[in-house]
Computed example of a mutant assay.
Amino acid sequence: MGTRAEVLNVLHSGGVVILPTETVYGVAARADRPEAVNRLYAIKGRDFDKPLALCVSGMDAAKNYVTFDRLAKRLAKKFWPGPLTLVLPARDPSLFTRLAPQLYSTAPDGTPTIAIRCPDAIWRTEITFAKIEYPVALTSANRSGEPAPTQASQASKSLGYDVDDMLLLEDCPMEEASTIVSLAESPPRLLREGALPLSALKPFGIT
């Protein structure tokens, strides 16, 4: 278990680490390092056809990877940083550092998409090197099929022996995974109700 600076340095260097969020503890790797992302999948025992969420510090960074329509901007301004993951159309990968293929999915019309999130986490604004933010792939820090850990002890017990470092702080206050909404299809679709209740999204036309 390291300090925040130590754990983020391991993450920057291509390691796989455990990080806390406001929802559940997550296991993370740099999303632009395919070998690190592959190792994250192996540690978790996750099917490679299940994409990971991309975590960024805010909307400005997110615009490097996805496109925002009016509704997406409204939702991000209202709920970021926070427990809302948005599935949005991916930007042309030639415009930015190429992401690992496991970050991409496909909308019903064939549009490439990315699930993107801005967690309300203490490390959110520190995922930088030489003042350039690097993208982070994140999923819950548990073996696939097991409950997502909301306590530091649970995360450590689940994956602690396999990752390179861990930032173990307080228990996750929301104790539930993020809510996922797809805006890459019409009408927008709720994919998973989590820490952000559907009632908070209904004023935006999400049902």
Results as ranks from 00 to 15, higher is better:
residue 36 A to S: 15
residue 204 F to A: 01
residue 12 H to T: 09
residue 102 Q to S: 14
residue 23 T to W: 05
residue 18 I to N: 02
residue 34 P to L: 06
residue 148 A to R: 00
residue 130 A to H: 12
residue 65 Y to C: 10
residue 24 V to N: 10
residue 190 L to T: 06
residue 99 L to V: 07
residue 187 P to I: 11
residue 53 A to V: 13
residue 122 I to W: 00
residue 99 L to M: 06
residue 111 T to V: 11
residue 44 K to E: 10
residue 156 S to V: 03
residue 100 A to N: 10
residue 103 L to V: 06
residue 70 R to I: 07
residue 94 S to R: 15
residue 131 K to S: 12
residue 196 L to K: 03
residue 177 A to R: 04
residue 22 E to I: 00
residue 197 P to T: 01
residue 131 K to L: 02
residue 135 P to V: 05
residue 80 W to A: 10
residue 7 V to K: 04
residue 184 A to F: 10
residue 79 F to R: 05
residue 39 R to A: 01
residue 27 V to I: 15
residue 191 L to W: 13
residue 4 R to V: 02
residue 68 F to Q: 13
residue 197 P to G: 02
residue 191 L to H: 12
residue 198 L to W: 02
residue 44 K to V: 02
residue 20 P to W: 03
residue 84 L to G: 09
residue 54 L to F: 05
residue 90 A to S: 15
residue 100 A to Y: 10
residue 116 I to M: 04
residue 93 P to N: 11
residue 58 G to K: 01
residue 135 P to L: 04
residue 167 L to V: 03
residue 192 R to L: 04
residue 44 K to M: 05
residue 5 A to Y: 03
residue 84 L to S: 10
residue 43 I to S: 09
residue 169 L to H: 00
residue 120 D to H: 10
residue 201 L to N: 07
residue 93 P to E: 12
residue 200 A to G: 03
residue 133 E to P: 06
residue 81 P to H: 11
residue 128 T to R: 14
residue 89 P to H: 13
residue 118 C to N: 11
residue 113 T to V: 15
residue 77 K to V: 00
residue 12 H to R: 15
residue 20 P to N: 08
residue 26 G to M: 09
residue 19 L to T: 02
residue 30 R to A: 07
residue 40 L to I: 12
residue 52 L to P: 10
residue 146 E to I: 00
residue 152 A to S: 14
residue 174 M to L: 15
residue 153 S to P: 03
residue 118 C to Y: 07
residue 63 K to L: 15
residue 22 E to G: 06
residue 30 R to V: 05
residue 145 G to D: 13
residue 164 D to Y: 08
residue 140 S to K: 01
residue 19 L to D: 11
residue 60 D to E: 15
residue 115 A to W: 07
residue 170 E to H: 12
residue 61 A to Q: 13
residue 63 K to Q: 14
residue 180 I to N: 01
residue 64 N to T: 13
residue 175 E to R: 14
